[in-house]
Design a protein around this nucleic acid. Structure first.
Lengths: 182, 182
DNA sequence: ACCTGAACACCGTTCAAGT
DNA sequence: ACCTGAACACCGTTCAAGT
């Protein structure tokens, strides 16, 4: 939370950069994210961006952080466990392309790798919470991991939304047991 | 199968390029795959590569095709269904990084997109075959898709081999039913 | 058919210099 | 603290020209 005028200005400029990055990222993925191009759009020198972000991958992290925050920023659905997981999978689906970008960039950037660990932990936590009453405590970790893997694996495929839901339903009911539909 | 001397020479040069590409790809992923760099290594002009491959992504496909072929080129394991799937998952694990590269590049290259469809179909077929006796025919498609999604999702995570096997075992047994361990 | 030389239009990143 | 100008060392791809 900024206090001085300078801090406000700094935050504004930072936001401007991140917003531009988000636009590029949502439209065309990592390949469309260009520091030089963003600088051009904002009317500053290329290296001006480097005052705020030491590296392109740091900018990537900031942008993805914002996007993910917006995706998760809505009240989770209520209902049977299977429906809550399906809702979770829908959110994950919106994030899937960037999830893979993060995974790829984590190879060469420690900053992205650290961010990826945070993201996976966060998503897993959300899933565990929504499963707490349906899985027995001694199986909840494996169940959450398996369901999350199923979601991510299903989302990896380029199939129709209906097929996706059918597959997830099939898998979730078997992974969580019959009480998941209550 | 080449007949003339010219064809032999052509195949040799093609192989040389693809081998160089495979090396870069295995070592450092897509980021380390550089047409210019390969040309440098082979001692030819950069654009010489473009006589054989119209685009960097076509070279990528050729290289990944070879790598995948080598990975799958060993007799599948025999035993209980769960063990066969675990063996399959091990093969998939070796391929996982490139699987994601393919997925990413498929966005901007139709050649890669077509190749991805082939790969997914092939892997799915291998899995269905090894599940044919354990799943009932009316569920075999969903079961294969769910197991494959589970595998790919598990492999997406950066966890230990032991944790990976435990998760897969947990998931497979539930997705395929108790008869999968026979 | 196969390859070279040279260029084009980009990149991410860095350095010295300005205010 | 914040930004510019200019450069460095790369890219993928294309074109005209050679053999």
């Amino acid at each position: 939370m900024p206090r001085t005028r300078a801090d406000v200005a700094r935050t504004d400029k930072l936001d401007e950069i991140v917003e531009a990055a988000r636009g590029r990222l949502v439209d065309g993925g990592y390949g469309a994210l260009s520091v030089a191009d963003i600088a051009r759009q904002l009317g500053v020198a290329q290296n001006a961006i480097y005052w705020y972000f030491p590296t392109k991958d740091h900018l990537l992290v900031a942008a993805v952080e914002g996007i993910l925050h917006d995706i998760l920023d809505c009240k989770p659905k209520r209902g049977a466990a299977v429906d809550r997981v399906l809702w979770f999978a829908e959110r994950l689906h919106e994030f899937q392309d960037l999830r893979l970008t993060i995974r790829e960039r984590a190879r060469s950037s420690e900053a992205v790798a650290a961010f990826e660990r945070n993201v996976v932990g966060l998503l897993r936590l959300l899933l565990v919470n929504s499963l707490s009453e349906v899985a027995t405590p001694d199986h909840i970790d494996d169940a959450a991991d398996a369901v999350m893997a199923l979601c991510e694996g299903v989302l990896l495929r380029d199939i129709s939304a209906a097929h996706r839901r059918r597959l997830l339903r099939f898998g979730i009911e078997r992974l969580l047991g019959p009480e998941s539909t209550v």
